[in-house]
Design a protein around this nucleic acid. Sequence first.
DNA 1: GTTCCGCATGAATCGATAG
DNA 2: ACTATCGATTCATGCGGAA
Lengths: 275, 275
Amino acid sequence: MIEIKTDIFLGDCKEVLKHLPDNCIDLIFTSPPYADQRKNTYGGIQAEKYVEWFLPISNELLRVLKPTGTFVLNIKEKVIEGERSTYVLELIFELRKQGWFWTEEFIWHKKNSYPGKWSNRFRDSWERLLQFNKDKKFNMYQDEVKVPIGDWAKGRLKNLSETDKIRDNAKNGSGFGKNISNWVGKETVYPTNVLHFATECSNKNHPAAFPENLPEWFIKLFTKENDMLLDPFAGSGTTLSVAQRMNRNSVGIEILPEYYDMLKKNIEPIKYVIL
Amino acid sequence: MIEIKTDIFLGDCKEVLKHLPDNCIDLIFTSPPYADQRKNTYGGIQAEKYVEWFLPISNELLRVLKPTGTFVLNIKEKVIEGERSTYVLELIFELRKQGWFWTEEFIWHKKNSYPGKWSNRFRDSWERLLQFNKDKKFNMYQDEVKVPIGDWAKGRLKNLSETDKIRDNAKNGSGFGKNISNWVGKETVYPTNVLHFATECSNKNHPAAFPENLPEWFIKLFTKENDMLLDPFAGSGTTLSVAQRMNRNSVGIEILPEYYDMLKKNIEPIKYVIL
DNA sequence: GTTCCGCATGAATCGATAG
DNA sequence: ACTATCGATTCATGCGGAA
């Protein structure tokens, strides 16, 4: 029996991160507040100042990450005066200068994107998942995210009830792993760098940025059980609770007392597991 | 009856473009040789020199494009020494400095991407389709690319036969336009900035980068019949022949004599149409 | 218990109106 | 003029109540 710990800290992650030792984190998965977004909850960082604001934080992230670890950054630039803002591109350049390797850019295809109609553009239906590494050698457990061949993405289903079954499996978080066992024996293939997940749009009283599937997928891919995760912008704690459910230790940092209180209330600090 | 012209020129587009008048093109759709790719055919532009090589060309493109026109650039950076190369990002910066507006970044999700297996990354299954404009006001015919409501992903279908109809339509390439008419009257919705097209499987003896659906989609979206297209890297001529089929005039430029000869042989210079 | 339908709800964006 | 706020637009999803 082992302990799975979930430590949550209140404060500005730039400062709190200084208390973490070097090379202790296997995966950083986070979705920082986007520029000029969520003004009411977070302060709303301006696009022009975003890079400057982020770099001291990412410098600490570089320090605490193990050489074999991975940093996954979920972000998307908004439109400013009819153009896509370039601060995310600039951020990639600056992170490389800081010592990060920009290993890959995954695309998160949000199947249910925000509605709306404009004369000069369509709905924005994707976000970036930027993978950065400290070293060109890093841990990656590709077999953990293999998917059954010819599935819901391919479209040759026998009947609708089967469709629904599969979709239901994909919905509940833990099911992804378990239900795959139904498909063992059938052929499985490796996924690509395009991820298809719908955003959760309901009823939890917090602005959950992403569905549980998203951190779950990267946690499977880049960590094993009992590894250590970090989310410096814990927010509503999606990443932390998924990590705990998957038997990974984690550290979360949240600057807003309301969210911090909610995190402390909803997430057990220690979970005992027989591996 | 009108004439639809397809003019094809042999030469370096940087030079050939100088012979075109200002403000004469409604849509530039092109897929330039990617850095360090296709060395044997195009000479292979090095990643570090890519931007420098491209800017004089894009400067001419800016000149020949109508203020209401659009420039769509299909490109994707390759991996160099374990990292995504940054020359495409740099190109976006420099094009903006040159006077282009970076209106949008569409994602082309290649449903059947190139196979392969690597220990540190998955298959690359998407490319960028960067939309640049000369002016913040430009022509966009959104209704031309409306799609049947996404029931195949929604799961609230009355019966399966309907599902199959929709899926079959989406599968066959050129059907996109035609079969949609079967669904007029039924509900249609606007697409998003994520495009799902399969790459064409070989058959034609050339390195055709994209399927016909791709230029077709943008031609529908940004031009009307009898408008003028430009592809400065005509290659095998996919864009040109699609343009002609859709009753759009076009200008193609190709630097390699072999391809030029093939283009001249395969594409009629004038087509007479009753609109 | 199922299946079905109505309804609220989003990391949005533009253009017009107001200070 | 230049910035802040607001209404209009739109659609996949999950939830709850109804058949």
